[in-house]
Structure formats: structure tokens, C-alpha cells
Design a binder for these strands. Structure first.
Length: 213
DNA sequence: AGTGCGATTGACT
DNA sequence: GTCAATCGCACTA
């Protein structure tokens, strides 16, 4: 028996193929995009290697939303939210956390989808090295944690996530669980709108327990 | 130029 | 469960 050949086959089956999401596949409306992205993948091409995480939690910040960063109009720091859908908007907050959004809607409309949690799939040792803790469950559970694990910062702001560059959105074969809805986390305005989407029962989802089942 | 405040996290009781 | 650290940005003067 050819051990190498067997090993290669096993590796291929262990990591199912991943393809780039095209812009045409992305729903134009923010809420639809937020729901659509649950179960898709985020891929980062880093110097150490490829990182893949399965998106298990998102939040929509649609046009006109008082809680959205685009609400008071376009500024130098939020301009990426106004790009055509599928571009990265990276924001820095609380003096410590970067957050990754996918721009939505038509060009010139300020709106986006916040990626809040990933299920680590590939490159886990590299993610663990960037984070200080070891528990797999906590590697990318939270918007600031996932950018930390993936090495995402303001240099990624404005990147086209449908181009297959250093950061891109992908789709893999495999089942997607039930997508549940809830209020968004950590807001002082528009806090009653059901614009958070997550995979029901996933241990990789963030937030208080009552917002995870 | 000064001020207030987060789409959070990690440490601690 | 509670709580403080931390800093870029928008806003006021």
C-alpha cells in the first residue's frame, strides 16, 4: 500500500475544497447578506499560511440604522462602508479591538455586516499563536478575537473580499445548522431590532448564553 | 486643543 | 456575575 498516496487522499478529504464567493452571489440588502454569510468561510492568506474560519455569527447594520457607523455620513475612517458590497471595513474600538465588517448595499450607501464569530477550521496553530489562550472554542469567539486570531487590522480596510487577495470570503460544502435571530450585542441605540444571525447551538458563537440557543 | 465615548476583552469576585 | 483598561474619532470651542 502506498502510504504517501493514502495520506494525500486523507488530507484532501479532511479539508473540503473552498471556492471564492463572487460578488454576484452576495445578497444586495444588508439583512439578507448577514443571514447569507452564516455558514460561509473567511480566509486569510498570511505569511505563515492559510487561515480558514467558518462564519457562525453576524450582525446587520442596514442603511439609516442609528447604531451603524455610517449613520452620520461618510468620513475618512468609515468610507469603506460606502463601497460596493463585499469590501472590508475594519474599525478599531475600545483601544484594543479591531472589528471586521463586510460592506453591503449599492455603492455610495453606507451599510455593512459585522462578523462576530468564527469556527476555526484551518491554520489553528497560527491562530492560537496570535491569541494568548489555548481553548479552541475561544480562538475566534467575538468580533475582536476573530480579527486578532486572523491578524486583521486597519491595513485590511477597503480590501475587496471577492478578489481572492490576502483576505477573502469563501464557500465550502457542508451542512449549515439552523440560523437563529436575536437582538444585536452591546448597543445603546436600536437595541430591539432582530439583526443578529447565528448558528443555533454552535459552541463558537459569542454573547450571553440566552442569546446563543 | 479638550472632551466623551464606544459594534470589547480579559482579569477577577 | 462585575469592572477597568485603552485610544482613535467625532464633536464642541
Amino acid at each position: 500500500m502506498d502510504t504517501n498516496r493514502t495520506q494525500a487522499r486523507l488530507n484532501i478529504s479532511a479539508v473540503s475544497p473552498i471556492v471564492t464567493l463572487t460578488r454576484e452571489e452576495l445578497p444586495v440588502d444588508t439583512e439578507g447578506l448577514a443571514r447569507f454569510l452564516v455558514g460561509k468561510s473567511l480566509v486569510a492568506e498570511t505569511p505563515e499560511g492559510r487561515l480558514i474560519g467558518r462564519i457562525v455569527e453576524t450582525e446587520a447594520y442596514p442603511p439609516g440604522d442609528a447604531a451603524g457607523h455610517a449613520f452620520r455620513g461618510q468620513t475618512p475612517s468609515n468610507r469603506s462602508l460606502f463601497l460596493e458590497r463585499g469590501h472590508a471595513y475594519v474599525y478599531f474600538t475600545y483601544g484594543s479591538a479591531y472589528m471586521l465588517n463586510v460592506s453591503s448595499e449599492r455603492p455610495g450607501i453606507g451599510a455593512g455586516v459585522l462578523l462576530r464569530a468564527l469556527e476555526p477550521l484551518e491554520g489553528i496553530p497560527f491562530m492560537a499563536r496570535r491569541r494568548r489562550l489555548v481553548r479552541l472554542r475561544d480562538l475566534a469567539r467575538g468580533p475582536g478575537r476573530l480579527t486578532r486570531a486572523f491578524g486583521i487590522d486597519r491595513t485590511h480596510d477597503g480590501l475587496d473580499l471577492c478578489e481572492g487577495g490576502p483576505l477573502w470570503l469563501g464557500s465550502r460544502a457542508g451542512p449549515v445548522g439552523v440560523v437563529e435571530t436575536s437582538v444585536r450585542i452591546g448597543l445603546s441605540q436600536e437595541k430591539d431590532r432582530l439583526l443578529r444571525f447565528y448558528e443555533q447551538g454552535s459552541p463558537f458563537v459569542s454573547g450571553p448564553a440566552r442569546l446563543r440557543t
